[in-house]
Design a protein around this nucleic acid. Structure first.
Lengths: 155, 155
DNA sequence: AGGATTCAGTTGAACGTTCAACTAGCGATC
DNA sequence: GATCGCTAGTTGAACGTTCAACTGAATCCT
């Protein structure tokens, strides 16, 4: 539990870090507001619907879905409960593992996603993608993959 | 209110966007956990303390602080109320504008920040900064500045 | 087989954020 | 110098997330 004089961020590092935090704060707030307004759900719930819409049967194991959306099991559990109340997701028992639950996107949920998506994509474009060069988009992807590798995997 | 067939994200764009969202989700969660564990406050509260520590008198107008931390006035109001309960911030009336409030970092708050900072910086380094090349750090800063310009300013 | 461990998922309380409504002071304008 | 609108900040209810505790089922071990 020593405190070996931390290496503080230099000017360049601090600038990048602060810009990242500020941009991310504003960006996520803006996306939340847009989706809350258009679809009545926060950004995290939208991502759940997106992921569920990808398999042909619109069905996923809860833990699979938790991993895909990078959310805790608890968060997903609460979120799916809310979306189920709304009739956008249905839960059923898993045949092969009696501990498991399968979440299925309902037709109403799929329709809701279809209504929310255009506005969301437009927001992502206008706030991020369309402001960057093709090269910068690639740079961002690479940078985030590096960070992701550290956080998701081991070290 | 037409829906003019949105321009969906192509593979490259979608990859970058998803990596960004996933990395950000995991990163902010990790920073929150680290700070909650080390200092008992979430990341947003830490940023409030940092900003307040920068002026020599450790004092800022509430709205100045809200702008600096990119937070809504309501969020800041609640947050400062909590930090005041803890004795880390003090509020006083503004002399020149009777509507205004001045928030001041107390000595206890400054000390708490001093205790939290090393672990936080170490986390930022290990998760982000030390994984990127100097060039990538600059790229990230530039990208985020572009996004920030769109969200903070006009268009 | 029996017991410990781990895994899948849920639950409720505590906490932070959002939203809308509100108080109060400032400023412009007529 | 009254009024209208804007700015500063707060409040409480509703909502989402976190954390820790919990239930049950699978798996491991001998």
């Amino acid at each position: 539990m020593s405190t070996p004089t931390p290496r503080w961020l230099d000017a360049q590092e601090q600038h990048a870090w602060r810009s990242y935090i500020e941009a991310t704060t504003l960006l996520l707030d803006a996306l939340d507001r847009q989706l809350q307004h258009d679809a009545g759900i926060p950004h995290g719930y939208y991502e759940i619907l997106v992921r569920l819409s990808e398999p042909a049967d619109h069905t996923m194991r809860m833990s699979e879905l938790a991993d895909a959306t990078r959310s805790s099991r608890s968060r997903l559990s609460h979120a799916v409960a809310r979306l189920e109340e709304r009739g956008w997701i249905r839960r059923q028992d898993c045949e092969t593992d009696r501990r498991g639950q399968l979440a299925t996107l309902t037709d109403a949920g799929y329709a809701a996603l279809g209504r929310a998506a255009p506005g969301h994509v437009a927001a992502v474009r206008s706030h991020v993608i369309d402001r960057l060069s093709r090269e910068q988009i690639d740079q961002l992807g690479e940078i985030c993959d590096l960070v992701l590798a550290g956080l998701a995997g081991g070290s």
